[in-house]
Design a protein around this nucleic acid. Structure first.
Length: 307
DNA sequence: ATAGGTCAAGCGAGG
DNA sequence: CCTCGCTTGACCTAT
């Protein structure tokens, strides 16, 4: 049975200032120090508990956690945060709650995470950022498997798609077990970059890293495959873990404005998500977040269990 | 209180 | 050369 999920932000709770994305600028961090980062992080993790409960109350069992939950968590020593113990305790409660109710939690670090970069400082900050996510998932007690994926793109070719992919694979080996066991790659949304086929041949076959199939991106970079073919190939990389796909619609599909970038996501989604008969979980990437998920479920009369 | 500018991170596409 | 888009708005300052 397909679980539908949404990403990072709950609009309904956000209106009440319940969110996991309290962030701070570098200047503020330098001015106010770890104490303020700690306050924000604690509030973020406490609100995560509220959001997960809201999700269960609304029959949603799939959620993406954002990267700001511990502001600057990749640049600071989080064990030094004044509220470190309380933060850990809260994360642990969230993880236990997720286990109890069968909530799948994943994350998708940003487009700045580039393991193929020719610049060592970019690779190092990517590693630091991914390790932060691995640590947070460990603190939550989430599985070290692709069930709780940490998903990124290869994201750049530096003029040579093949050598960049090789660089990516060799830097993959520099990651800890807690990250390697969870890392997945997603097909890119530019023709010059990595299709599902590219990822299969250049990344998965070398490292075993599973492929997240993104429907929308596939329309920009199909590698000569149909949607069904690419989806099936991506699914074949997941072993015994239920695969994840990403679904979004172009803003230009919903608004008649020629100036819109076709890559921009719409607020809501309306088309039926065709999983081509496969049992997968679908992460809905729409600007209206959980509201888009609820609307979609109503529109297509999709039933969901309460657990 | 709100609007508008700015931001921690890298790259490629399009104008 | 500048802006947008991406995982995502939230923060900050001036009105």
């Amino acid at each position: 049975m397909t679980n539908l999920g949404y990403a990072c932000i709950n609009m309904t709770l956000g209106k009440k200032r319940i969110l996991t994305g309290r962030a701070m600028r570098k200047a503020t961090l330098e001015e106010k120090g770890l104490a303020h980062a700690s306050e924000l992080a604690l509030q973020n993790v406490l609100d995560l508990e509220t959001i997960l409960k809201w999700n269960v109350d609304n029959g949603i069992y799939f959620f993406r956690l954002g990267s700001d939950i511990i502001p600057w968590g990749d640049k600071i020593d989080i064990t030094q945060l004044p509220d470190y113990d309380a933060i850990c305790a809260s994360l642990k409660r969230s993880g236990e709650f997720a286990a109890e109710h069968g909530i799948r939690i994943t994350t998708h670090p940003g487009p700045f995470n580039l393991l193929a970069s020719p610049r060592e400082e970019v690779i190092q900050s990517t590693i630091n950022h991914l390790e932060m996510h691995g640590t947070i998932f460990d603190l939550m007690g989430l599985s070290r498997s692709h069930y709780n994926k940490i998903n990124i793109h290869v994201g750049a070719t530096y003029g040579d798609k093949y050598s960049a992919a090789e660089t990516w694979c060799s830097n993959f080996l520099r990651l800890s077990e807690g990250v390697r066991s969870r890392l997945t790659v997603e097909n890119d949304d530019k023709a010059s970059m990595y299709s599902v086929r590219d990822l299969y041949e250049l990344v998965h076959s070398k490292t075993g890293v599973p492929i997240v199939f993104d429907y929308h991106h596939h329309t920009f970079c199909d590698g000569g495959m149909s949607e069904a073919e690419a989806l099936e190939l991506a699914i074949s990389t997941w072993g015994n873990i239920k695969p994840v796909t990403h679904y979004s619609e172009s803003k230009s599909l919903h608004e008649s404005n020629d100036k819109l970038n076709p890559r921009a996501h719409s607020d809501y989604i309306t088309n039926y998500i065709d999983t081509h008969g496969f049992d997968v979980d679908v992460m809905i990437e729409a600007k209206a977040k959980e509201l888009a998920l609820l609307e979609y479920r109503q529109l297509h009369k999709i039933s969901f269990e309460k657990r």
